[in-house]
Design a protein around this nucleic acid. Structure first.
Lengths: 248, 248
DNA sequence: GCGATCAGCGGCACG
DNA sequence: CGTGCCGTTGATCGC
């Protein structure tokens, strides 16, 4: 194992991307604690300190450590141990104990590019701002990302009668929390301003429970159709699905 | 590139873990869309179809595709393209276009172990149930309430005066949404039952805004100290931090 | 299968 | 730094 340790230490010193595959058990302690007994595992150590342990299935690393962590190697009998440690935000560490042959590969990587993602909620909000007439004519956008002191409203508008309209926008099917979020904002606005306040959830679909809750609060739901799969955001429709008399 | 394609296709056919490192650009379309221009990238293909693209820094894969995705290879001039596609829940795909030399490694992995994590909210709830006297003497846990079984609420209890006590437990510092969630449960209970209902947030800390919101709703906050870093959950203290008269 | 919620959430933007 | 909130959230458990 001494040879493997040297190889790994060199790769770490060179600040390479390090890839290890072998039978190992994994322990973690810190914000929580975990144990994973022996099995074949993929370990990734990035130049920035990121430390990932993957099993042979599933998308997410089963154990991980963020950028800035320090990794060290130890020999314990005939076992090689990798320990990744960090102190902030809390003291936490992963220990990977390899029990046998380790396949080691290291790579020098150069990459300064940043991804460009289309279809975020923020972009949808901008798009909706342009097409706010779909919701209601004579609706005037006051602000986006309005600070209500107890949270942030996606879009704040004013209708033709001078009422405030708080709009909660979701990029996917609205759930209970979308409605409760909206309720918190609306409640806050009603407390502070001496104006009537309406609440609107705007999303591609809403769960039945969320719709019930929304109706019970006198809010409105607008079914939003959009496409963001072709590197641009296009709102294709905005259908009012709910017309309950609003007791605001 | 033909040789590389063969090597990769063989590894995929053998259902191995496949690791590729090389200069590539990445496109994604589906629930959203993204482009990432050329740079050195790490690509991981797991036997279950998981497809991950990593940059040389950061914890999370910059592009990804879940289990069940199908990966295929193509030659386009002197470029090798990997395409990972899936139809459910929506049609989405990643295309990785390698522009030069690719380092290819494949591994046969055997692993049927599952991780054991200590410190989940559920475990905390069980522990708190044992020490419920910390919150208030003569507090009785109502475990057979339907609301609890459905996971509707973390803990439901009854105080000495017969009032319902809804407890929202958080494994980390409580934020606005913890209070909002609690408010939804309490509102629901007040509507359904003909009993007075109190609300308690129990967490290791609470943000100032959340505390204000909590107080404005007449709820209570209990500061929870616990340790779960040594493979067991131990509640070390439970300090009442808030004593506002509850107008329930 | 959808629905609700947790997560060692991570990441980002803002004060 | 902490707070708030989004995320191609993913993972899990219940219905």
């Amino acid at each position: 194992m001494l040879e493997e340790k040297k190889t790994i230490d060199e790769a770490l010193a060179r600040n390479n991307l390090l890839i290890l595959v072998g039978n190992a058990n994994v322990k973690y302690f810190g914000r929580a604690s975990s144990k994973l007994s022996n099995g074949d595992r993929l370990v990734i150590v990035k130049p920035d300190g990121t430390f990932l342990v993957h099993q042979n299935s599933g998308m997410k690393a089963i154990n991980y450590q963020g950028p800035g962590s320090i990794v060290k190697t130890f020999l314990s009998g005939d076992k090689l141990i990798l320990k990744s440690e960090r102190l902030k935000p809390v003291h936490e560490a992963i220990e990977v104990e390899f029990t046998g042959k380790i396949q080691i590969h290291s790579f020098s990587m150069h990459d300064d590019k940043k991804i460009n993602v289309i279809g975020s909620e923020k972009q949808l909000a901008v798009e909706l701002e342009q097409n706010i007439g779909f919701i209601e004519k004579n609706l005037k956008i006051l602000t986006n990302e309005a600070d209500v002191k107890r949270g942030f409203i996606d879009l704040l508008a004013q209708d033709s009668e001078g009422n405030l309209v708080a709009i909660e926008l979701k990029r996917r099917r609205a759930s209970l929390d979308a409605v409760t979020q909206l309720e918190r904002y609306v409640t806050e606005l009603r407390k502070r301003k001496n104006v009537k306040v309406r609440g609107i959830v705007c999303a591609p679909g809403i769960t039945p429970n969320a719709l019930k809750l929304l109706e019970s609060r006198g809010f409105q739901f607008f079914n939003l159709k959009y496409d963001s799969s072709q590197m641009n955001v296009r709102i294709e429709g905005l259908e009012k699905k709910q017309n309950t008399l609003n007791f605001y």
